[in-house]
Amino acid sequence: MIKLEHVSKVYGNGTKGLDDVSLEIQNGEFVAIIGLSGAGKSTLIRTINKMIDITDGSLTVDGVDVSTLKGKSLRKFRRKIGMVFQSFNLVTKVSVINNVLTARAADMSFLRIFLGLYKKTDKVKALEALDKVGILDKAYIRADQLSGGQQQRVALARTLAQDPEIILADEPVAALDPVMAETVMDDFKRINKEMGITVLINIHHVDLALQYADRIIGIKAGKIVYDGPSSAITEDTLQTIYGRKLTDDEFMKEKK
């Protein structure tokens, strides 16, 4: 369970990333965070695994106070949280399977990583993860030779190979075309339903958020302005979140 109580984040230059945010996310939920760019979506996602430090309030994950973690305990904590990025963040000059294997690096000795001597169980795990997202046959191709959608699925496989309990995804489909975006979102949904992994996803495209997520959190200027089931969202709530009428830009597919 992820629990935020009165969490604020003020950046060094004075901008407020988060402003008194309180929320609770149960295990196994599929949550989408929507809002304008710069509203604090990325900040919210990144505070959960302490890629960004919070400046005020308390943040606990499964009862662990995240702000007290550092060094070894922080790294141990991060192992159960997977992260997927807008720009895939793969090591481009390396094969797909070796990219997935990097997710196991935290548990391996440095000597093994240095020499590239991965254990058989790790390799099997990596291949299984690739199989789950349907790109097992691409395992030995260099990551930069894949299409954007395939690269994002490699990134997803990398996260799965980590055996996460929570997956944080920061705009995972923003760089993809509509067809690819849906396949990747389908993968997220399946992972959430079949494996019971909590999925917390930042998403720019409102239609995808409504279609896939069970719960929507709307953020505006660092504050939560909507938190509830996706079925209860109306035009009006969307207008409060965005502070204006939605444009075509906020939809992946044609606006209905």
Binding site: L115, L117, K120, K123, V124, L127, E128, D131, L136, Y140
Partner: peptide, 12 residues
């Protein structure tokens, strides 16, 4: 399938 793929892993 996974075993077959595993065999393709390049030797270090």
């Amino acid at each position: 399938r996974i075993d077959n793929k595993l065999k393709e892993y390049p030797s270090v």
